[in-house]
């Protein structure tokens, strides 16, 4: 019983991890059809900001929830102004430019911090379930992932700004006619996506270790999750993360972590073959 309990926590936390990795990218791709290949580096910058702030004596939670998102939002703002703005509507060009950006950021961070792995320890200790114990921080991640999904959905559904953002997503020209400048909306969306990526980076920093190349391990997985999600980005990302996370943990449990990863990737390929436009193009189309 205890064992099953731990296993379920493992499955859910691996789903939460995927959600955290993908949600920033999901917002950018879903809202503006921008594939940000530097997404992993946004996460990396968030993680570095958090580690540096904590080492400078700042409170962990303050660093995670305030400093890191703000820092990455600033980076996102500059990137949008300098690069993305000129490439709207050209998916592959945007992807290549941000791929260049990704390499550029890795190089810069390597020069500044050196090619070493640093990290901070997870706060909050652990809780015990029967004979086993699990890090409490895992539970924080699960709650945060769920909260982010719900917050994004509520923001888009219930607020005025969310309505405008969805309108710009559906038809930018009409939205412009109604007096809302699409460029501003896109810029804001990109900055919000970047801020959330920064938050994710800070949240996962205690678990993964922080190095200049850490983003590379995430970007492909985030990218695959978002593409498989389909048109209903927020809900789809959650759903696809649930499928992939379960497959990954289940196969890791019976075989090895390598095969767990491979099973995740294989299920992505099969999913795209069966549903070429993503999961939510077929089911739950009304969701967000």
């Amino acid at each position: 019983m205890d064992y099953i309990c731990i296993l379920i926590i493992q499955v859910i936390s691996s789903i939460a991890m995927l959600v955290l990795l993908a949600i920033g990218l999901a917002i950018m791709f879903g809202m503006m059809k921008v594939i940000n290949f530097a997404h992993g580096e946004f996460i990396m910058v968030g993680a570095y900001t958090s580690v540096m702030s904590v080492n400078a004596g700042l409170n962990f939670w303050l660093a995670t929830f305030v400093v890191a998102p703000l820092a990455v939002a600033f980076v996102g703002f500059i990137v949008e102004r300098v690069i993305i703005r000129h490439l709207y509507g050209r998916i592959i060009e945007t992807m290549l430019a941000t791929w260049g950006l990704s390499l550029f950021m890795i190089g810069t961070v390597t020069i500044v911090f050196g090619n070493t792995v640093t990290g901070i320890s997870a706060p909050l200790g652990s809780i015990s379930i029967g004979r086993f114990s699990n890090s409490t921080y895992d539970l924080v991640l699960i709650v945060m992932a769920a909260a982010l999904l719900v917050a994004c959905a509520l923001f888009l559904r219930r607020t005025n700004l969310g309505l405008i953002a969805r309108a710009a997503m559906q038809n930018a020209d009409i939205t412009a006619v109604l007096g809302h400048e699409p460029k501003k909306i896109y810029c804001a969306t990109f900055v919000v996506g970047a801020a959330i990526s920064g938050l994710s980076g800070a949240l996962i920093a205690p678990l993964t270790g922080v190095s200049p190349g850490m983003g590379l391990a995430f970007v492909a997985k985030a990218f695959i999750t978002v593409i498989c999600a389909g048109p209903a980005v927020i809900f789809g990302t959650g759903l696809v993360a649930a499928v992939f996370g379960t497959v990954n943990t289940a196969v890791t449990f019976v075989a090895t972590p390598v095969f767990g990863e491979v099973a995740l990737l294989l299920s992505a390929i099969i999913l795209l073959r069966v549903m070429p436009k993503g999961l939510t193009a077929r089911i739950m189309r009304k969701a967000l």
Binding site: I35, F223, I224, I227, V258, L265, A268, R273, P276
Partner: peptide, 27 residues
């Protein structure tokens, strides 16, 4: 055969082939 008979287009081809690259790299 898998990709083109599935009528998978532009970016999605990129994602599938990228995924295959990752699988080989991992394995």
């Amino acid at each position: 055969y898998f990709i083109f008979w599935g009528r998978i287009g532009d970016v999605y081809v990129g994602v599938i082939t990228l995924t295959i690259t990752l699988i080989f790299s991992q394995l």
